[in-house]
């Protein structure tokens, strides 16, 4: 048989970091399964559990979650890429979510967004070079009487004015 040179060499493929599901996370996911009639229903919570530890959902976690739930990794990926609070790419240490829905738009969203972009040097969907902040838009946060509204990580901030931004960011190192 004629010898052939492989078209793609294994060494040239991008390295996939090996992923091991943390034992605590596995246990937490298994506990979640009992809340539902079907293990699949825990997929969103499982992604949130992994994201809580890593800041995002690494590639290897998709198959690992699928294994715990007994569903194909492709299904887990389908869910992960659908929901905007699940991050399939690394994000900064802190995630800023600016409400851009109508009431916040009417009360000054454009100015707040510009202030953040200018201060951080990034646009929506981007992460600062030092890995500290990721800036994202988000839909109505249900506090429209106190617009503009935003979230940083799990905290909601109301009546945000552009001149308050520096002080706000200083709280998130």
């Amino acid at each position: 048989m004629e010898s052939t040179t492989p078209i793609i060499k294994l060494a040239d493929l991008p390295k996939v970091e090996p992923f091991v599901l943390h034992a605590d996370d596995r246990a937490a996911i298994e506990r979640e399964i009992h809340h539902y009639e079907d293990p699949r229903a825990a997929s969103i919570e499982a992604l949130k559990i992994v994201q809580h530890r890593h800041g995002w959902v690494p590639d290897g976690a998709i198959a690992a979650i699928g294994e715990v739930l007994g569903i194909p990794g492709a299904d887990v990926e389908g869910v992960a890429t659908f929901y905007n609070l699940i991050f399939r790419r690394p994000v900064g240490r802190h995630v800023i979510k600016l409400c851009d829905s109508v009431s916040c738009y009417l009360t000054g969203y454009d100015d707040v967004k510009k202030a953040f972009s200018d201060r951080l040097g990034v646009g929506l969907g981007q992460t600062t070079a030092d890995g500290r902040f990721t800036l994202l838009p988000i839909c109505c946060l249900g506090a429209c009487d106190k617009g503009p509204v935003l979230m940083i990580d799990q905290d909601t901030h109301f009546d945000v004015a552009p001149d308050r931004i520096n002080e706000l960011l200083e709280r998130y190192k």
């Binding site: 539902y36 079907d38 229903a41 659908f82 609070l85 699940i86 839909c139």
Partner: peptide
């Protein structure tokens, strides 16, 4: 009774999309 928290997407407020989401599917 359980409190199930979502992961975003406005469409989850649509009754049948909400059910799909609760089942762990795309909404």
């Amino acid at each position: 009774l359980f409190v199930h928290t979502g992961a975003g997407r406005y469409i989850c407020g649509e009754e049948t999309a909400l059910i799909n989401s609760l089942e762990g599917r795309r909404a």
